[in-house]
Design a protein around this nucleic acid. Sequence first.
DNA 1: TTGAAAGCGCTAACAA
DNA 2: TTGTTAGCGCTTTCAA
Lengths: 326, 326
Amino acid sequence: MSTIKEVAAEAKVSVATVSRVINNNGYVNEETRKKVLQAISTLNYMPNEVARSLFKKQSKTIALIVPDIKNPFFPEIARAIEDVMSSQEYTLILCNSDGKVEKEIMYLDAMKQKYVDGIIIVTSTLTPKHIETRDIPIVALDRKISPDIPSVTVNNYEGARQAVQYLKKIGCQKIAHIRGPHAISNADERYKGFMKEVENEPWFHPELVVNGNYNVLETTEATKGLLTKYPDIDGIFAGNDYMAIGVLKAAVQLGIRIPEELSLIGFDGIQLSQLTNPEITTMAQPIYELGLTAAEQLLEMIEGKPLVQLHHHFEVKLMDGQSTKR
Amino acid sequence: MSTIKEVAAEAKVSVATVSRVINNNGYVNEETRKKVLQAISTLNYMPNEVARSLFKKQSKTIALIVPDIKNPFFPEIARAIEDVMSSQEYTLILCNSDGKVEKEIMYLDAMKQKYVDGIIIVTSTLTPKHIETRDIPIVALDRKISPDIPSVTVNNYEGARQAVQYLKKIGCQKIAHIRGPHAISNADERYKGFMKEVENEPWFHPELVVNGNYNVLETTEATKGLLTKYPDIDGIFAGNDYMAIGVLKAAVQLGIRIPEELSLIGFDGIQLSQLTNPEITTMAQPIYELGLTAAEQLLEMIEGKPLVQLHHHFEVKLMDGQSTKR
DNA sequence: TTGAAAGCGCTAACAA
DNA sequence: TTGTTAGCGCTTTCAA
């Protein structure tokens, strides 16, 4: 790799002049510019981004911290973010936190040391204090951190209500909920939406809610227990599509037909939900748009622009599949 | 963020001494070390990695270039790589190439400019020339680039043969293949393995091979056409699990029962293959191990160690699911 | 319109 | 055992 010095020598100008042409700022004579461009091309010169970063205190890099990229929701998000970022010549660092606050903090610090310009994070454990003391642009994705920290989320509460309303509308008489982990805000919100819709129903009792922990296997087991104990359940609202798949498996194992005997609705609208048999009816998040928005939001912050809107809250939309009867 | 200078001032020593204690090299008196450590802790000092990179010409960062992180094979790989890398204090940059050589080259150059220490790439389009001229440690994953470039791959040919052998063993009389895209080496190799096993069978003819392009929808359509034209097909070898899902969908749409009327075997062993109904019998790659090996391989190269083995070639293993009769 | 030089924060050679 | 200093490759101020 050649350096700016070599280019300067080749073009017989100073490094300052070369810097001016590659950054397109300051006056530079047209003749001189041509000489420099020529030198750059013959030497195949590309500016050293590390040196630039050191001077500018920014790296044209952002980090995405997610619990686990293997969770199919996150690759879709990651892709959207990378698309925006690469179009702006930013680079994306991927971090898996496993939802552990120590790892999140470790990454936060590591990123700071690298002059990473900003961070998009999916977290349930980080507190505003962790962030303030580190003073780096950050946007919370999928789960809010605090009212002061920019976020991009969806209306989990309303989405859950609509899901249950839909199940009622198609005639379900006894609806259960497989909820996600406690202390993960979106799971809690979806649970609350569910409760709002069912708590005054004569048929409702708390045992119709079980925890699937955003996990397929656990969900399958939990659902089997549930359906065995209460065979008259004819509708299930799963806290996400992943768990809906667990319900599907449970139904197959118990010989219960979906949607004929049991209607199932999920949440998220990940691609996977359309690959199963039957395809899962779900409350779809605008996943790509979430990533996009978070990325754009972060870029604004990095560029020091004032945020027009601190929190972006998207609605979810019923995506009709084959797992609910009509 | 405080700097090494501030730490030096606080501890009343020179920056060189501070550098010595944080890097743990060179002599430094125990008393002095304590003073420095104290200063570091009171100032909450963390070394600036960018400055380090500039000097050392390396960044403790590696890049992973994949066609599309949304393809469920890659998050599993990415996770393995990130695990290894983060344990060694390396950071992972994620790049989506969409399989386009321009994007691959763009990323290669961008990574060089950032002093990225090495690259793991999944590519069918890059040639040795692109890499040589850029002179950066690289390992090819999933698909070889050339005999000179280190790689981590699986035995696609043998895996495909075993898949077909298995279908024959369980009694299939007419076996079709949904192949992946032309010019992607693993798809070609699996195709060749399939052909080796069937070309001399009396029932075989070339129309039993159709292209699913590693795409669910295309596969569903192609399979429907195939099964309609040749209803006596009783075994299908799909070039990957993703396409096997397409076959599953086609079968459902045609009312063909799997495995009773049609046995299906996939390739890859992604988690997704175990989430469907029925679970897909597949030739499983040791996915996590592939990522792990590629990461370790790359680290060796970065550390300048001679590679004991240039190419790592793993065997695949039959993972019995429910999509094949017994 | 151009160049000289300081400095971003760090490491390492050299000197003391 | 410690300090001084040059230099990694770049940008930007200041002066010419």
